[in-house]
Amino acid sequence: MHNNWYAIASYEQGAGPRAALVLDEQLYDAAALGAEANPLLLGSQHVITQWEQQRAAVDALARRLHAERAAGRARPLTPGSYKLLVPYQPGRIFGAASNYYEHAAEMGTQLIARSESAPYCFMKAESSVIATEEDVVKPATTHKLDWEVELGVIIGRSCRHVSVEQAHEVIAGYTVFNDISARDLNRRSDYPFTHDWFRGKSFDTFGPMGPWVVPAQCIAEPQKLRMRLAVNDELMQNDTAEGMIFNIAEQIAYLSSMLTLRPGDLIATGTPTGVGMGQGRFLQPGDVMTASIEQIGTLRNRVVAAAL
């Protein structure tokens, strides 16, 4: 892991959201880092959506925290004394469909040659986002609720027509995303348009995200990150982001060719093989999903039935 690794988190202890820096999965409250040139005092939402303006100050705080901790002067929050919140609220969520060859195969998706294709992107409601340890609510209308661990890429500056070569320059950071999907609601028979991914993926609670945001400069090779997801401690997905058909930079270039990407936009870059649909196995109330990406962190979310 990067020697100066850190993450940005949001948490609460009963008196509203507070920002923190994370070192080795320990939280350090923003206020304890001092008030001078400390944008975290305005919250993690402010920092992420103003990343281009705030990055240098946050990096300086992180370096100071590393030094203070090495000298034994920094005190982390006591585990169990706080609740992690969503690290920030994305402005828009863009999803990449069938973006791993093996996942496309397990779903029975027939792909044409990559050279003749382009990323297939959809939008997922930003209101679907929940934090780690929050419950995913299974709607009564679905019998095929599924999991998808994905590398979340967060845009850090307003940009349009970004080249593949320059794409990594517009990334603020990375997070873990679980693209919960109601497979039987992704399809329609009452319209001539057979796919409805917005409906199948946009229910409230269908977007576990977090546990924090790791700045892009802290991860040297994001395409090599290993992604895992377990259900009830049984490993289902285990692959690296190298399996993507269209890599992170290509997805950013494609999206920015159509619209202006904004700070805080989130790209869910696709999921590897091992989803429930490929096994005919789906989530039930009481199941617990644990989604993790190396160098970032772990999400844990339980499934509950919708209230009648």
Rank of each mutant, 00 (worst) to 15 (best):
D135N: 15
M227T: 06
A216N: 14
V162N: 02
C159I: 03
V170M: 01
V137Q: 07
R160C: 05
R199D: 08
V136A: 07
E169T: 12
E126N: 15
I248V: 13
I219L: 10
E169Q: 12
I248P: 00
N186C: 11
W147K: 01
D146R: 00
I248S: 00
H168R: 13
C218E: 09
F246H: 07
I248R: 00
T240P: 02
Y191I: 07
L225K: 08
G243T: 04
E169L: 05
F246L: 05
L185C: 03
E150I: 00
R183D: 04
W197V: 08
G210T: 14
H143P: 02
E134A: 14
A182D: 05
D184Y: 04
T175F: 00
T194R: 11
S189L: 07
A131P: 10
S181M: 04
L185N: 04
V214Y: 09
F198E: 09
Y174M: 00
I154Q: 02
G152R: 00
E148L: 01
I130M: 13
E169W: 01
F193A: 10
S202V: 08
G152C: 02
N232Y: 13
E234N: 14
D146F: 01
V136I: 15
Q237E: 09
N186A: 06
A182M: 05
A172Q: 08
T141R: 13
P139E: 09
N178I: 02
W197I: 09
G200E: 03
V153W: 00
N238Q: 09
E234D: 15
M227K: 01
D239E: 13
V129L: 14
E234V: 14
D233E: 14
P211C: 14
N247P: 07
Q217W: 15
C159T: 05
D239A: 14
H195Y: 11
G152K: 00
D179F: 02
V129T: 15
N232I: 12
M244G: 01
T175A: 12
D146V: 00
T141K: 13
I245V: 12
T142D: 08
Y191G: 07
Y191E: 10
G156I: 02
E242C: 10
G152Q: 01
L229R: 04
